[in-house]
Simulated assay, not measured.
Amino acid sequence: MTHQALIDMHSRSNGFLSDIGAKDSLVPGAVLVAASYETAAFSQSLFDALDILCPDTLDRAVDKRRADYLAGRAMASAAMALLEHPPASVTTTPGRAPLWPEGLAGSISHARGRCACLLSRDTSRSYGVDTEAIASGRSLTAILTETLNPTERDRIAKGPLPAAINATLTFSAKESLFKALYPQVGRHFGFDAAELIAPPTSDSLALSLTTDLTETLPKGRRFDIHHRVTDSHVLTWLSVPAP
């Protein structure tokens, strides 16, 4: 998919998608695509317009849930085309993770009007991407009290970025890490399974495991996570080698 084709996707979305663009993934062999989407512009007909299969599981879903799903799968479609992979549906596992076509591995995220996909042909690695609206008010309080421990709360108050952005980045990074590690761990684990090592820098942050998740994912294992910050959202992503 060329950049002109990204523009064509925007046109076919009839105002639902905007600002569609390929980002520098900083992950060898992986593509990263992100966009904005407008829930108010969603209509069921957009699934056909964008050549995205609407699953039966969304039959009774509200429009917001359908819009979120469509936005994420549209990014997956764009990422596949950038990798010159034939168009294919991305279904969902029982654990609600994307089920990628053979020969692909990746991750999808959507949150409050932003969506993203990190995708690669390298299936020897697993991938995680997450986008979040910069937290404030109750959302920020929830992150501070439910996601971060006292040491992390001290660390987000330092560094070059505002504390609210650091808090959101840490939350997002833990989401990305969960997505990347879930294929190896095979079970859910909490936010307390990883801890922010130091204040985020202008383009990355590091987490370390606080517990043994598997024999190959021991306590103390460090993960460096890329990030980007806009006026309204953060984006975090990483890849992890398979054991």
Rank of each mutant, 00 (worst) to 15 (best):
S18F: 01
L161P: 04
R138P: 11
V33T: 10
T201E: 12
I20F: 07
A111D: 15
S107F: 06
L119A: 09
C117K: 03
T211N: 03
S208W: 00
L83P: 02
A105C: 13
T216G: 01
R138V: 12
P55L: 05
T168C: 08
F42H: 08
A35P: 07
T168A: 04
L46D: 08
R155I: 02
T123W: 04
L238Y: 06
T141N: 13
K174T: 03
L144A: 12
H10V: 03
R66N: 08
D59R: 14
G220I: 13
R73A: 05
Y127S: 05
H226R: 01
L83D: 08
A180V: 01
G15S: 11
L148N: 09
M1P: 05
D24Y: 03
L144K: 15
T170R: 10
S204W: 02
F178W: 13
L6N: 06
S36E: 13
G159P: 08
T168G: 09
R12D: 15
R221E: 10
T141C: 04
D19T: 12
R66Y: 04
A194E: 01
S25E: 08
D122V: 00
D51F: 08
A79P: 02
Y69W: 14
A78T: 02
T151E: 15
A88D: 07
S239L: 02
L53P: 00
A71V: 03
S11K: 12
T92Q: 15
L148Y: 11
I134F: 07
A163K: 11
V90Q: 08
S109Q: 07
R114I: 05
I225D: 09
G95K: 12
A157D: 10
P243M: 10
T210K: 09
D68S: 09
L70R: 01
A198L: 11
P98H: 12
S172W: 05
T216F: 11
P55Q: 13
L196A: 08
A81P: 00
S36T: 13
Y69D: 13
R73Y: 09
A163R: 12
V185R: 06
G220A: 10
P160F: 03
Y182N: 06
P150D: 13
L82H: 12
L205W: 07
A105I: 00
I20T: 11
L58I: 02
L140Q: 09
P94M: 06
D24T: 11
K23Q: 14
R153H: 12
E146H: 14
R112H: 12
R121S: 11
T39G: 02
A81I: 00
T131W: 02
R153V: 00
S109R: 04
P183S: 11
M75I: 06
L46I: 07
T147W: 05
P218D: 01
W100I: 00
A71L: 10
D154R: 15
D203N: 15
K64P: 04
T230K: 03
W100T: 00
E215I: 02
L104F: 07
